[in-house]
Amino acid sequence: MNDFVDEARSRVAHLLRMANTTDDRLRAQIIEYADTTPEPPVISRGAGIVTTGCSRCLRTAWRQHDSEGPLWVCGTCGHVEPITMRCPECDVDMIPPRMGAPDRWECPTCDRVGSTLASS
């Protein structure tokens, strides 16, 4: 099978193939899970997939980015929470990075920049 065929498969097809089971009850649970949870984000060039704990259900939330800025989306309960950053010098909300841009936040009043990604 070529890569294009694999990319064209649905999320349900990928999960069922990974589970590798013929148990109808388990297959139904996998299909229900895929239908009721958001899609994982596309892996970005700079950051890969970034996760945190959901503030509601404590499960995994993925970092995603829409036209208004970055946000956390829970993969289990679907809770959406915006990501914000305050300038430590001016105490104002920093301007989030544009969609597709590196994680570089800018202060609107001073030249300070920041990142939400922890450095190791």
Rank of each mutant, 00 (worst) to 15 (best):
D93P: 08
E89Q: 13
E106K: 09
S55K: 12
S115K: 06
R56F: 13
E81D: 13
C57W: 04
R56I: 14
M85G: 05
P82E: 12
C90T: 01
P102K: 11
R112S: 08
E106Q: 12
R56S: 14
V73N: 06
P82A: 15
S67E: 14
T52W: 04
T60Y: 03
M85V: 03
M99P: 00
E68A: 12
T51W: 02
C57D: 08
A118N: 11
S120F: 12
R63C: 12
I95M: 13
T84E: 14
C74I: 04
R63G: 06
A118K: 15
G114K: 03
P96V: 05
H79A: 15
M85C: 09
G78Y: 04
W105P: 02
E81F: 01
R104P: 00
P88W: 02
D66K: 04
D66W: 02
C54S: 08
G114C: 05
R98N: 10
P102Q: 08
V80Q: 05
V80R: 11
R56L: 14
H79W: 10
E81Q: 14
G100L: 03
R86C: 04
G69E: 07
H79L: 15
L117F: 06
T52I: 01
R59C: 12
E89V: 15
G75A: 04
S67R: 13
C107L: 09
L71C: 08
M94Y: 07
P96Q: 02
R104I: 15
S120Q: 13
